[in-house]
Amino acid sequence: MKKHSVLPGFGLTMGFTLLYLGLLVLIPLSMAFLKASSLSWDQFWHIVTAPRVLASYRLSFGASFAAALINAGFGLLVAWVLVRYSFPGRAIVDGLVDLPFALPTAVGGLALTATYAPTGWIGAKLAAVGIKAAYSPLGVVIALTFIGLPFVVRTVQPVLVDLEREVEEAAATLGANRLQTFRQIILPAVFPSVLTGFALAFARALGEYGSVVFISGNMPMRTEIVPLLIMTKLDQFDYAGATAIAVVMLVISFGLLFAINILQWLNARRLSAA
């Protein structure tokens, strides 16, 4: 198991960590599996592949993916601007990036709905050109973009700070133009962190509930997200059905996070080998 170390406290801290995780994470989450196991495999499969549930996977995954993609692109841009350019108010903007993380999701949902509804500041302008923002899949993407915004920025920013300018200079001296430098020097360096940020934003968006239900309109087959369906099933006293869908989501979440951690580990190895 553990390699030898002269430092004390492994038993104590590891024991406490495992105990706490066991009590607070493992046992509670295994309840979902236990409850779902009251279903036969056929019943389980029937519930998690019902057309409405499939439609909600499509929306949840599609919208989360779109939002994470938007955040990957714009997050990289925002990080670049914050690190490389100086402009008045930079410190304020830098601080604001974390706001979606600190703001209660219900408040975020209310604010976004008030902004993007046809009567809202931005929604009115979008409605004028025929774009329906709130109460459509686009509304879901907007909410998920909002909550995922900090992740790419915050994972890319430190990498950009540490990026050595000498390499860029060298590239320029060798005749590369700025775009080439960006594509061949900067992008490969920041790409792993963009990917990590993307995956974090994606994982977070999949489970988001509070902010989305206000803005989505909750139309069956069109704007119902997976957590809403779990809630719907609970409200019908259908615990087994709710936990069946929850189990699917839990497995996916765990898989995604595991992939992120492996990715970071591989990346760390690549860097230290280089």
Partner: peptide, 17 residues
């Protein structure tokens, strides 16, 4: 066009939005 999750949500959608 919008199915809110509760009656109050619908009223808000109609009246305020």
């Amino acid at each position: 066009p919008v199915l809110d999750s509760g009656a109050r949500g619908s009223t808000t959608t109609f009246v305020e939005r």
